[in-house]
Design a protein around this nucleic acid. Sequence first.
DNA 1: CCCGAGCCTGACAACGTTGTCCAGGCTCTA
DNA 2: TAGAGCCTGGACAACGTTGTCAGGCTCGGG
Lengths: 345, 345
Amino acid sequence: MPQTNLRSAARYGTRPTMKDVAARAGVGLKTVSRVVNGEPGVTPETERRVQESIEALGFRRNDSARVLRKGRTASIGLVLEDLADPFYGPLSRSVEEVARAHGALLINGSSAEDPDREQELVLALCARRVDGLVVIPAGDDHRYLEPELKAGVATVFVDRPAGHIDADVVLSDNFGGARDGVAHLIAHGHRRIGFIGDMPRIHTAAERLRGYRAAMEDAGIPVADSWMSLGVTDPERVRGAAEEMLTGRDPVTAIFAANNRVTVTVIRVLAEQARRVALVGFDDIELADLLQPGVTVVAQDAAAIGRTAAERLFRQLDGTLVAPERIELPTRLITRGSGELPPAD
Amino acid sequence: MPQTNLRSAARYGTRPTMKDVAARAGVGLKTVSRVVNGEPGVTPETERRVQESIEALGFRRNDSARVLRKGRTASIGLVLEDLADPFYGPLSRSVEEVARAHGALLINGSSAEDPDREQELVLALCARRVDGLVVIPAGDDHRYLEPELKAGVATVFVDRPAGHIDADVVLSDNFGGARDGVAHLIAHGHRRIGFIGDMPRIHTAAERLRGYRAAMEDAGIPVADSWMSLGVTDPERVRGAAEEMLTGRDPVTAIFAANNRVTVTVIRVLAEQARRVALVGFDDIELADLLQPGVTVVAQDAAAIGRTAAERLFRQLDGTLVAPERIELPTRLITRGSGELPPAD
DNA sequence: CCCGAGCCTGACAACGTTGTCCAGGCTCTA
DNA sequence: TAGAGCCTGGACAACGTTGTCAGGCTCGGG
């Protein structure tokens, strides 16, 4: 039963160290270190003996000890809201790719949109001495990061700016995107346009709401309170909100859904309606083009956001960057049908 | 310009250590350690002084040093194919949740389905001394993990079994799921059923193909080679393969798409067809219920797979588990319309 | 008043690696 | 043949933390 052996070895398992390798190869400790790190100054013959011992013992350098000595961990942390969200998967992946290009590993954490959990995660990453942090903030006060910044932890915020500290931030043009999306509906004849979005304490949600208001104002359309639903997120309540603005007095002929989860729920609601209601969503969703009608969206490029943030982070580590900056990436309106439906009363 | 200060501090940034805290508080090193770790035996007054110093200096314990001393890192590694794939997001998230419940962090890596990269990642994680590994293997030989297993790194494979080593594996019933899906098509009158899947060297792909063949054989239907497309993955070639089996002689009346990416492409192809072709896909896809017709799928529960794997991993670390096991989770056929279409010649 | 028990506290070694520095042996040249 | 210079290899300290252990203090009882 080989597995039993493995598992009991595991219990008492102790790994070989460079010292063990050195002893077996009959060389000094430092020589092993040189071989492991590909440093010059080792005879081929000696190197061969050392390699042989490494193989035989299954030695693997202990990076904790290495980090302790060298100061850099070659790893960066990414704190986001929820890895299961289709927006964050590609973002995380693109951060990972950039990290990999710089020889760094990525440690991921989901804050679940909870400020305390965000802080807990960030500090845990700092305790592990990540070289840098990409943070999609849940909270709005990041002063707890000051000692870390002082200590040289490269930091880039994504999607929402940092609170009360001066740091790089990479985000989409939420305001402009939302304004364009709503203007698109207006251009197609709509005047009674609903808005369903997240709590305005979330920066992106607030910006998108501002974009909605701006577009309406630009068109000289007064906004009825009953057209706006702020702060609902769970599908059941989004559904309720949508139904209400569709059936109340002054019913809307179009809906602007301010994020991907809301969009999906609204699509479901609209599918049940007799009347054709126009829809523009913020964030692209998979298969949006295959629905009837196709879903018109204001798309963010999650991969580009992640890449930009990560590259900036490594430029901080290089020392290439000096002053924190705010980088806004444009959104893209993708017309597929649902946003071009005419008003139907 | 506060940012400039921060950044230049960063350049020369050095973090306070327990020694610094101790000096400032006028206590011994070990006392600081005790306070930081909440160990008993410190006067409230002393503790207060230490806490004050910690705050003032922005001290954060260095976990690398801690790990070096204690042996456990409280982190686990997850190597998967591509975090941007909607199947892996929820899986990763559920692993993270279990890790969190055990006070561990999760380090993620994408192998991009490349065996060398898988090994590179796994070994990098081992060098960082993760306590455990969840691996979705890309390669089929994992003997390189033997020293790690011996050293006590808890390991669970997911989605596909390990090659040449004896380790836990958690996966879906790929064979049964595919067989059921194909049988479902047969039950609705189809006989000429196409199969589009990944390279059979990938375990899941091979199992699903086996399920397809079994269902066909059970029904006494001989399979034409032109109905099977193996090893194509990129959308363009999947499209070509689908079109070929739809238009060749002996054209299929139904297609079994063996993974989510294939399914999506096939949906696009079928949308362009005049004739109604039935479809069952392996893996659920978002919005599948909103398409016309809804997409019938064999669904895996990614979150359950991740959770099961992670829980098993921590049970290995507890010492609760002894012998490696193979755990197969059932799939679920979700009928939504596309799989119930009758054959149309 | 003295002694022992018990509680705080701190000195010291160790974890595994890397940087520094020096020793010894070799080659090459004068 | 001797000296200079180079190359290889190893001893040792240090990184920041925690476990061990011993010392000093206080307090109560004899």
